[in-house]
Amino acid sequence: MSLIIAYVGKKGCVMASDKRRIAYFGEKDKREELEDELYSGLITNDDDLKKRASELDITLKISDDATKIRYIENVIVGEVSSRSTTETRRKRIYGTSNGYQIIEMLGSDITNSEKGENAIILFGNKISKSIANDLISKKWKDNVSLKYMGDIFEAVLSEVSTKTPSLGKKSDVMIVHPEFNKDEAQTHLDETIKRDVQLLGKWRDKLKEDLIEQNETIQLATKIIDEGKVGVVSEVDGSILQVTLNEDVQAYDTNWKQLAKPQERVIMISDKENIEVGDEIVIENEVLCSKRTKTGLKCDIILCNL
């Protein structure tokens, strides 16, 4: 978690965030120890972070291209998240003119929410929020433009990044200023959040389906026949053969869609017209052929055991 700063008021919404993302690889206890030191302010720069990670035998992956804020029509959305092997926790702020809502999520389920009309809101770890709070208090001026607020937030992010490596030096700033009154703002936010969370749910469902499909593909791939009996020739029409699969063999296309079950027929092509009905079809030395004549066969299917 790094830092997102948001202003919400009558004039509109300004939101800014850094773009750093840090992934930790190593023993859980050591990862947590490193994170505690980082987020409490004991580690103050990138070199010290890398050195301490090495001491704890933790591998780091640091990137400065993460997108933490985005537009949805007349709303800006900021999100921080933390991931474990089993779940993802998200905290989001949705801001527009005269209104904001903050939601906390486990997966794609909302576990907590709050709303308001105007505020300066900070998402981040303890050290980054503490430094940012002090800087905003010193730099803030009343009745300034949204653009000036954005400049202030950008300057704050830059300065915080010099004091903790939990932030990178790159940042994003976004501004919206639709003409909403307080009631219109909350109605619009309700509708936006509903659509956004539904999209997240659909994305998670699709990801789950893809993972299941990939797992099934991997399992099928381990059953591809590279040696053994396949079936028996049931019909011959020149070079075109119809082969009845054995009771423990099935056929798939290249997208792993099942084309034939055991005891059903598939089409194969012979280079020579010397194959007869009743000939056994086998794979020998990873070559599909007639067991009797050794004539090679072609097919555009994948043959697997059950």
Rank of each mutant, 00 (worst) to 15 (best):
E280H: 10
D279P: 03
E264C: 05
G228P: 02
K139D: 07
R20G: 00
I225M: 04
S82A: 10
N112D: 06
K182Q: 08
R52G: 04
T295Q: 02
S113H: 08
E73W: 02
A66V: 09
T44V: 15
L122W: 13
N98G: 03
G116Y: 11
R83V: 08
R83H: 12
R20K: 04
I136Q: 08
I281C: 03
K10I: 08
K28T: 08
D47G: 01
R21Q: 14
K294L: 13
S290T: 02
R90N: 07
Q258Y: 00
R70V: 06
T217V: 15
S166G: 11
S171E: 12
D300L: 07
N74A: 09
I62P: 01
L241W: 07
K206L: 10
I58N: 02
D142P: 00
I301M: 13
D196F: 13
K202H: 09
D64M: 06
L3F: 04
E104M: 11
K182M: 09
P165Y: 10
A6G: 11
I224K: 13
M268V: 14
E213R: 14
L306W: 00
Q214C: 05
K229H: 10
R89P: 00
D65S: 12
K223V: 04
D210W: 09
C304M: 15
D248A: 04
R204C: 09
E79C: 10
S166N: 05
A185C: 07
S84W: 00
K208E: 12
G201N: 15
A260R: 00
R204T: 06
I4D: 08
A221W: 13
S161K: 08
V8N: 00
N133K: 14
I131N: 01
L200R: 10
E104G: 08
P178A: 06
V232R: 01
R90L: 05
G95M: 02
A6T: 14
K169E: 14
I225Q: 08
D300T: 04
M174H: 01
F153K: 06
N118L: 06
S128H: 10
G168K: 01
I193C: 07
L189N: 01
L3P: 07
V176Y: 03
V277L: 05
